[in-house]
Design a protein around this nucleic acid. Structure first.
Lengths: 219, 219
DNA sequence: CGATGTAAGGTGACACTGTAAAGATTGATC
DNA sequence: GATCAATCTTTACAGTGTCACCTTACATCG
């Protein structure tokens, strides 16, 4: 259902091959882009399918022909988000040898995606507005997850540690995901005691350092 | 219908003085309760102020007189959630001496609140639909946070560890918050490789154990 | 070629939503 | 007993998602 034949995640320019007239050219991508824009401006709560159609310059029912449903469009956005995460993760560990350093790089990449792809991230884990059973979505999610898991597995193998791969992977993932969601609250807390909000990058480094120490010294 | 007389949280016990007729008696609490009900049924995305009013048995504009706004009602629900978290946290560590054990108990309590108070939790960190600047909300949040921070501080003091209190507190919090949000995905992943979804309680124990080991052996 | 089928997009309608303004009802206070 | 503030209702309006149906453009084949 979530279609688009040629999809390089946000096509370079606003090509619109057959731009004029009835046929838009690449409406699915244009709608995804507009959707992300709306979410980033008004939040997932203020999302509006009609506003998306308006920004794409089409009638308010046009999205239905490609995504069936508001849930369908948002699911497609989430899928695009996981694909982008997959790419970013691979790029993050590229050229780094030490798995522990790779872990830090992955964390940094993960958290930075929450700001560079804020619209996508605001939707990717919202089980109430996307279709979590969509097989393509699950595939994209698993692919992104695979990168983190491989790094963890390599670290455990290299250092002959006796911890469970899944548990460690999930811990690292949870800590980063939690940091993303809690960052605003953390800023409030720091501000409430007169401190300035902490640098996120520094926090990531400390988090992974603490976790790696824990993994290596697991009892 | 949904007009139970007594309400545990807030308001000592003005039990629906004028039950029938024009004045509801304790509409704010009834609305909060209905709101949580709706969110738990349809998710935060399917929330409807009119539906809430309907379930409380009042006209659709009645909520505005108490909460001003849909955002106001949801903010109040979030506030109630943080208050409940505060109470649950205090109860969780009661009778436990070892700070590390207290940490595990706090984690268990935190994650279990995500199911016992699912409606509240689905709203507490949604910066796009609640008013994060609300001073009462911030106060409630800080109070709940204080319990976790105190436990971490005591552990660090007791064992003369040389790690930053804030960093450790934020790590523990992030890991638990991430686990809450990622639990569905984790289940999908486990299921995708034929395993049965892991027990959450066991995960919490492993997470805290790994983190505590990391904190104690911080380099 | 022209006819025809199909994908892509548009119109109009319907029930539902949040919010604002103004009216109705109650209890309390002087 | 009159006034006032709180509480709730009625009415109205603009905006929303989705449905059934209509229009346009393109490609394919006789």
């Amino acid at each position: 259902m979530t279609s688009a034949t040629t999809d390089t995640t946000t096509t370079g320019g606003t090509s619109t091959s057959t731009g004029d007239g009835y046929h838009h050219g690449d409406l699915p991508n244009a709608l995804r882009r507009a959707a992300v824009e709306v979410i980033e401006e008004r939040g997932a709560g203020g999302f509006s399918l009609r506003e998306v159609a308006r920004r794409a310059g089409v009638s308010h029912t046009a999205p239905a022909h490609h995504f069936g449903d508001m849930r369908g469009l948002l699911t497609s956005v989430a899928e695009e988000g996981f694909a982008a995460l997959h790419v970013a993760s691979l790029a993050a560990i590229d050229g780094i040898d030490d798995p522990a350093d790779q872990l830090t790089a992955l964390g940094r990449s993960y958290v930075s995606m929450a700001t560079t792809h804020r619209g996508h991230c605001e939707v990717m884990f919202r089980t109430d507005i996307i279709d979590t059973d969509d097989p393509e979505l699950q595939t994209c999610g698993l692919e992104a997850y695979g990168v983190l898991e491989a790094v963890v597995r390599r670290m455990i193998d290299d250092e002959h540690l006796s911890v469970d791969v899944d548990e460690v992977t999930w811990l690292c993932w949870s800590a980063m995901q939690g940091l993303v969601q809690l960052a605003p609250k953390i800023a409030v807390i720091a501000q409430a005691r007169g401190n300035e909000p902490p640098e996120v990058d520094a926090l990531i480094e400390r988090f992974t350092a603490l976790m790696v120490d824990g993994i290596r010294n697991a009892s």
